[in-house]
């Protein structure tokens, strides 16, 4: 565990906390894409199939449980909570899940570390995580007034990915035989998807203006 990896995980955790804060305290999910949240739940469910069979560390198991629990409860809140669900605008959140799920599944069947159920599911989860933010980014573009918490949520998610890249660079130079093409390429694609958002996020921050993405 290096400082970049820890900072990445903590940023990821912070993004989830910001979203839970918005949902729990403000009782609103306005501007949040249910599609993206459902994809994340699927990402964690398929990636952490090893949670009860393989042990890495207490830290690892705890974080897995947190990400599984939080992602499924966020989906539950948006879909079923009496007050929160009212702020969900279905007509704006139109991205189709299967446009992302099916290509990722096919790619996972072709490109994986080993052709076993667990490894194919793991590769699928890596590919799906890379593109799971797309429905959220599309929704942001359609939202005229992006509130601060939503902006911070997406910013923290992007920052988590950028820190993971630093972690890989660090591990590549400090560990022997540390080469992971699947995670590297997907992680790079995932981080690049945030580039446009980052640009406007920093612009709005610099000029002290409300965040708005050009349509």
């Amino acid at each position: 565990m290096n400082i970049f990896r820890l900072a990445g995980d903590m940023t990821h955790l912070a993004s989830v906390l910001v979203l839970l804060l918005k949902i729990h305290t403000i009782k609103s999910c306005a501007g949040i894409s249910l599609k993206t949240q459902e994809l994340y739940a699927l990402v964690f469910a398929t990636r952490y199939l090893d949670i009860f069979t393989d042990f890495i560390s207490l830290y690892n198991t705890t974080m897995k449980l947190i990400f599984l629990g939080s992602s499924f409860s966020i989906v539950w809140y948006i879909r079923n909570h009496k007050i929160v669900s009212r702020s969900y605008d279905k007509s704006q959140d139109t991205f189709r899940h299967y446009f992302l799920i099916i290509p990722c599944l096919l790619l996972a069947l072709l490109v994986n570390e080993k052709f076993t159920f667990k490894e194919v599911m793991w590769a699928f989860s890596i590919y799906l995580e890379a593109v799971a933010i797309l429905p959220q980014l599309v929704l942001l573009q359609r939202t005229r007034n992006i509130d601060n918490l939503t902006g911070q949520y997406v910013f923290l998610l992007g920052a988590y990915r950028a820190l993971y890249i630093l972690n890989w660079i660090y591990r590549y130079f400090t560990e022997t035989h540390y080469v992971h093409w699947i995670t590297w390429v997907s992680g790079l694609v995932q981080t690049l998807l945030y580039a446009d958002f980052f640009y406007y996020y920093f612009e709005s921050w610099k000029n002290n203006k409300k965040l708005q993405l050009p349509a």
Partner: peptide, 10 residues
Amino acid sequence: LKVVDGHDEL
């Protein structure tokens, strides 16, 4: 429970 060094990232 077995200790693995495969996918140690989250």
